[in-house]
Design a protein around this nucleic acid. Structure first.
Ligand SMILES: [Mn+2]
Ligand SMILES: [Mn+2]
Ligand SMILES: [Zn+2]
Ligand SMILES: [Zn+2]
Lengths: 142, 142
DNA sequence: CCAAACAATGCACTTCCATTGCAGGTTTAT
DNA sequence: ATAAACCTGCAATGGAAGTGCATTGTTTGG
């Protein structure tokens, strides 16, 4: 696990985020989890730590392009790690997000890009977000 | 304006919603406004009325397919009238929503449909929502 | 028309989540 | 070693959504 720890640390440092203990733990948690998580999810996973610290950690991650925010319609904010090489602080993040109505989980489908949209005359776009709801692959197997 | 009032009343009745005074006023407000509105917007427009009444009116409208909910990423729920003939209580509403970062308004682009999305194997979709951010036609003219 | 039944409204209260201020504590740079 | 910059914990605040209940208004069957 040493290598993993080191590579995580490197990711934080590359993004100019100091790798404190709490940040490393939260980063690892996000990396292990395949799905988008809420602040409450993280809170549950680390009962010892403070809500505010988690909140500010995620904000820092978001501003540094380590995670991106996902609004899946559930009403609470969710976050997921950005892909290596993703520059979503600058550019926009054009993959779609899938919310499974069975298992209630939300995930990035990074392979599936948002198609180009022809807007009516006069409109110009800088960003887009696409959330698809339905049943995920795992839930469809059962 | 008599005719307008009557036709609004007819729309409510067709959707099995009793046309009370408050409901007629809120419906008219939504019909005049071209943009999606928040509960707070309605509250501001009708200072006399109660927040709860507005809340429950919009819920009723939503459940009856008179308005649809829009989550544009601002964190607060917005609502807009459904088009005539729209059946979004049953079917899903597949037009896109545009949020202007200049005037901060959100509107339905009912002519612009969400394109078909090819999901990875195993995933099945029942609904989709697409929000595009940028500058609207009016703001681009200035 | 009247009374019972039903539906809508108003008010108070609650919950949930996001956000901020401030007082330590820790790390970093000089 | 010291000061500055940064991080963390705790308390408090705020905004928005939702619920329970009493009151008022509307419908409808007799
Ligand atoms: Mn994503
Ligand atoms: Mn719409
Ligand atoms: Zn699922
Ligand atoms: Zn605009």
């Amino acid at each position: 696990m040493r290598i993993n720890y080191e590579s995580n640390r490197k990711i934080l440092e590359e993004k100019q985020v100091r790798p404190t203990a709490m940040r490393m733990l939260i980063f690892k948690f996000l990396a292990q989890k395949q799905m988008a998580v809420t602040l409450a999810d993280i809170e549950t996973a680390f009962e010892k730590s403070e809500r505010t610290t988690i909140y500010r950690t995620i904000k820092t991650f978001e501003e540094s392009g380590i995670v991106h925010l996902i609004e899946d319609g559930s009403g609470v904010a969710k976050y997921a790690l950005c892909e290596a090489g993703c520059n979503c602080e600058l550019d926009s993040d054009l993959h779609l997000h899938f919310h499974c109505e069975t298992c209630k989980e939300t995930q990035c489908l990074t392979e599936t890009k948002i198609p180009h949209i022809n807007l009516p005359p006069g409109f110009t776009a800088t960003d887009a977000s696409l959330v698809v709801k339905g049943t995920c692959d795992k839930c469809n197997k059962k």
